[in-house]
Design a protein around this nucleic acid. Structure first.
Lengths: 148, 148
DNA sequence: TATTGTTATACTCTATAACTATA
DNA sequence: TATAGTTATAGAGTATAACAATA
């Protein structure tokens, strides 16, 4: 679509793929380690980051890419620690909306600020380079996020 | 270090961080989903990708960033499926080296080739853009991979 | 009937601690 | 004594299947 079909796949593309896997793993470990400093698993942190506004359990399952039955336990544990609350939906009484408490919101922000490895990595670039990187990554987004 | 300390953190850096979290998650899900098509968990796939040459159990634990006791089970399951084998080290009989079988090697290559979302995303860039992206990501690597 | 959330079950990953066999 | 690998254990994430309440 973007170029005449290449019989031999681009060497750059191949190496870029490896680099993305490596950096993706490192970045993910930074995320998990930072969340762990707050006693959270990476999935708990991800869910918490998605409930700055109320979200139904079902919606959380989609956003997390897991089965709805798992969300029950994850929310249970976050709720037991006072980081989120369940609210019954008034228009559809089957639905329960999850929303972060003030402490939950504060925790999300701290985790974001304390991802040391990621911050250090980004500090290695100039502001202009960050702008360039941002633009390139934004172009990757549609292909990467369209999941079946 | 790279610039006079910024009292207000760069807005670009902040948005870049969010974008990296989003893309990192999407990319990771692509990896996990592709591995799942071969009946492997993401950790099993990662381990498999690291044993193209023999690696001691202990070394695998470090590379995976988990406790050594976990590696036993992961290798057990891969070995039961004929994807890796354990080899006793001749110089130090305490050590067991893990190495992929031919089927294991083929599986790694297939997973790499079948990461559809990632390939689609990279196809959205021109070759020149890929070169630029590669150079920028390579600069992120040192900060991101230096973990304590 | 279909959907939302939950429960029950089984498997995998995870860390901690204790064990064995080597060094 | 120190190290490599294993085992035992407990907690968490995961999918599947079945269920109650509601639409």
């Amino acid at each position: 679509m973007t170029a005449p079909t290449d019989p031999a796949p681009s060497a750059v593309k191949s190496r870029l793929l490896d680099l993305m896997v490596a950096l993706g793993t490192a970045h993910w470990q930074d995320y998990a380690a930072t969340a762990a400093q707050h006693g959270l698993t990476s999935v708990q942190a991800r869910l918490l980051a998605q409930v700055t506004a109320p979200v139904p359990m079902r919606g959380l399952a989609e956003q997390l890419g897991c089965d709805a039955s798992n969300v029950t336990g994850i929310v249970d544990r976050l709720q037991a620690r006072g980081l989120v609350v369940r609210e019954s939906d008034e228009r559809d009484r089957r639905v329960k909306n999850v929303v972060a408490t003030d402490e939950g919101l504060a925790t999300i922000q701290r985790i974001r600020a304390e991802m040391q490895a990621t911050h250090t990595a980004l500090d290695a670039l100039t502001e202009d380079e960050r702008v360039t990187l941002y633009a390139l990554l934004e172009r990757l987004r549609p292909g990467l996020e369209n999941r079946d």
